[in-house]
Amino acid sequence: MTDAINCGLAILILALAAWTIVARDTFSAVVGFVAYGLLLALVWVQLHGVDVALTEAALGSGLTGALLLYAAARLRATEREARAERPGLPTRVAAALVAACVTVALGIAVLALPDPAPTLAPQTAASIATTGVGNPLTAVLVAFRAMDTLLEAIVVLFALIGVWSLAPDRFWGGRPGTLHHSDPDGVLAYFARVLPPIGVVVGVYIFWVGADFPGGKFQGATLLAAMWLLAVIAGLADTPPIGRTWLRAALVAGPVVFLAVGAAGVAFAGAFLGYPDGYAKPLIKVIEWALFPSLALTLALIVAGAPQRSAP
């Protein structure tokens, strides 16, 4: 039974990936990519990575999909011109050869993987009790490999700064995205009223249980961001001007608290991001609670894009 599910999933994934590659129209290709991302989340469940599955569904398929769909819709006018640039047969044959070589090399590597597989599960199991959390991924993310997560939180912030810096000078400090209007009695406005209360509860729940069960701040924050974007697209809310001081303070609060806890570790635990004995769980909680709102806001504003309107 499991074999049948795995084979069916693999075939569907490859078929949808092929669709995103060969579809004539970019918009159709992106729609295929979103469906493919959702199926990929099922692959993660089959590979026993439920935390990764949640991230893939929310971020890899959801927010990335929204971003790509918006771009595809805006760039629709360039489609005809781009098709004329399609490379000739020799280039395509050469590309196919390169792709085939890469696939065969990776395939051989997969079949030649060492047995028994190297694993850090024993070390994680031996040390997880010192962190006080039950979900091994949370323990790795905020305790054993906290440096990665700190840098990741800063990368997310830098990505937002990068997106903002692409604003034309006259709109600097203005509001991201265009002002959306929708029929106040339409389906979109209806969903934008009904879904966010449910989505916010689910998002906070996923964040809350992340210490002991699959979930966590990234998945929860993505859901909150999606709910806010839904309200923006339906015209029920507007994006804030990026020049606001409160906004900038909220964006950097998470990484700043994370850095402060890390620096305190130098004084009290003898290492950057070290937690003193017995204080690991409260400190992890502080970091998670500080990162969660900052991440939600940052992810939402990354999707909203560069400022396109002057502040009123």
Partner: peptide, 19 residues
């Protein structure tokens, strides 16, 4: 069901890929 260290790195990777 899996080695938690690479799985945690995957979550980081997905977020960075999105950025």
């Amino acid at each position: 069901g899996g080695d938690p260290v690479p799985q945690a790195l995957l979550i980081t990777g997905l977020v960075v890929a999105f950025c």
